[in-house]
Nucleic acid binder design. Structure first.
Length: 105
DNA sequence: TAGATGACTAATA
DNA sequence: CTATTAGCCATCT
């Protein structure tokens, strides 16, 4: 399905202990303005065992509000399990945990 | 088929 | 800082 596959390819590459934003994935996939499509791709999430949706957050580093895994609790749990900590407001410190694909590749 | 919706972001005022 | 507009593409009605 076109663009969705690109999104999945990128999201699958997110290493443990790191998070990525929709906009970031959108740029990597070559569509800097398709952040919505990224969100939709994760929303349908056809490969829940392959797509680490919990590592994808919005630009502010917070959870997206409508999680498709079993609630944001699961997302928070999974992230904390990967050494990612949340601030009081339930946000992630992007300064430390934001994935740097350029450095990875 | 056409119009509206959605886990978003960036630019502009 | 907030509010509004536009852009993207798959899916639903």
């Amino acid at each position: 399905m076109g663009y969705f596959d690109d999104v999945y390819e990128v999201v699958k590459k997110i290493p443990e202990g790191k998070v990525a934003t929709y906009g970031q994935i959108a740029r990597i996939t070559g569509r800097p303005r398709s952040a919505r499509v990224v969100g939709w791709a994760l929303h349908v999430n056809p490969y829940p065992g392959t797509i680490p949706c919990h590592r994808v957050v919005n630009r502010k580093g917070e959870l997206s509000g409508s999680f498709a895994f079993g609630g944001m609790e699961s997302q928070r749990y999974l992230l904390e399990k990967e050494r990612i900590k949340f601030s009081k407001e339930g946000k992630i410190d992007l300064k430390k945990y934001l994935w740097c694909p350029k450095a990875e590749e």
